[in-house]
């Protein structure tokens, strides 16, 4: 039985990290209807900034973590200001193409540094022993990762529901022209959406980097790995990202735990989430929590 619960715990751990990594995609899409293909590069940048501050400059890791979130906050805001602001009102596909171009530019910039082609790891700052309860084990790295994920998701949920800026962002997401007509600055909302996405990406990067080690290819791949999570949850739903992340994590772990190595199957942990995704999308094309928009023609 502990095997079953171990898989549940692992699924929740993996799923919540997926959710955090997916959050940035949701935030940008929610406000601007744009799928950001440079999200993985921002995840990697956040992790490397934390590493640089901690290891090269000797800043305590907790402060490095906060500082990297702050830096990526302004980095993503600058990206929006420089490259994307002038595309407001242009076809969405143009904006998406720009994000693909940005991904290439970020790749190139990171390749110019040692982070583009070397492996690193964060210094050990948490106990290396696991926490074992009833035969179910979880590492401190994972536990802290899950806690940070839920704290951040809680903060973002509160921000969107209660704060004036958050409500403005939701308004822009619902109807740009309507929001403008009541005095909301759409460009400012876009900038904030990108900035908060950058902030969450840095947090995700640090947590993933602490688990897998710091390798640029591995880190930026998560920008793509979490796309199914976002699609399953609904592109514009934070709750959807959380629920879908955990569903994906659980499916992956259960498939790996119970199907792989049996019945001649292998690698189902990677495939099953996509199969389930396709099945769910057959019935709910906008994802589990996505808004089904009906346009009157």
């Amino acid at each position: 039985m502990s095997y079953f619960f171990q898989i549940v715990v692992s699924g929740i751990v993996v799923g919540s990290i997926y959710a955090l990594a997916a959050l940035g995609l949701v935030l940008v899409y929610k406000s601007s209807r744009v799928a950001n293909f440079a999200h993985g590069q921002i995840i990697a940048a956040g992790a490397f900034i934390t590493f640089f501050l901690t290891v090269r400059l000797g800043v305590p890791i907790f402060f490095s973590f906060l500082a990297s979130m702050l830096i990526t906050f302004f980095l993503a805001m600058s990206v929006e200001r420089i490259f994307l602001r002038r595309l407001i009102g242009e076809p969405i596909i143009s904006v998406i193409m720009v994000t693909i171009g940005l991904a290439s530019i970020f790749d190139g910039l990171i390749y110019l540094t040692p982070f583009g082609s070397e492996n690193f790891s964060f210094p050990t700052f948490l106990p290396t022993e696991s926490i074992v309860v009833g035969g179910v084990s979880i590492s401190w790295t994972q536990l802290v990762g899950v806690i940070i994920t839920f704290v951040l998701i809680g903060c973002f949920s509160w921000f969107f529901k209660k704060s004036t800026v958050g409500i403005s962002m939701r308004a822009v997401s619902d109807d740009q022209f309507g929001a403008m007509s009541v005095g909301i600055s759409v460009p400012r909302v876009f900038a904030l959406a990108w900035a908060t996405a950058g902030l969450s990406a840095a947090a995700a990067g640090c947590i993933i980097g602490n688990i897998t080690g710091l390798n640029f290819e591995t880190l930026h791949a998560f920008g793509i790995v979490v796309f199914p999570v976002v699609i399953l949850g609904g592109l514009d739903s934070i709750l959807g990202a959380v629920v879908a992340g955990i569903i994906m994590g659980l499916i992956q772990q259960f498939a790996s735990g119970y199907l792989d190595g049996n019945f001649g199957l292998n690698g189902t942990g990677d495939v099953m989430p996509y199969i389930i995704l396709l099945i769910i999308l057959l019935f709910k094309p906008h994802g589990l929590f996505g808004i089904h928009e009906i346009e009157r023609v």
Binding site: S10, Q253, G269
Partner: peptide, 11 residues
């Protein structure tokens, strides 16, 4: 791209 190999290792 695994973040956790628990299931595999226990299997």
């Amino acid at each position: 791209t695994d973040l956790d190999n628990t299931a595999m290792l226990q299997r």
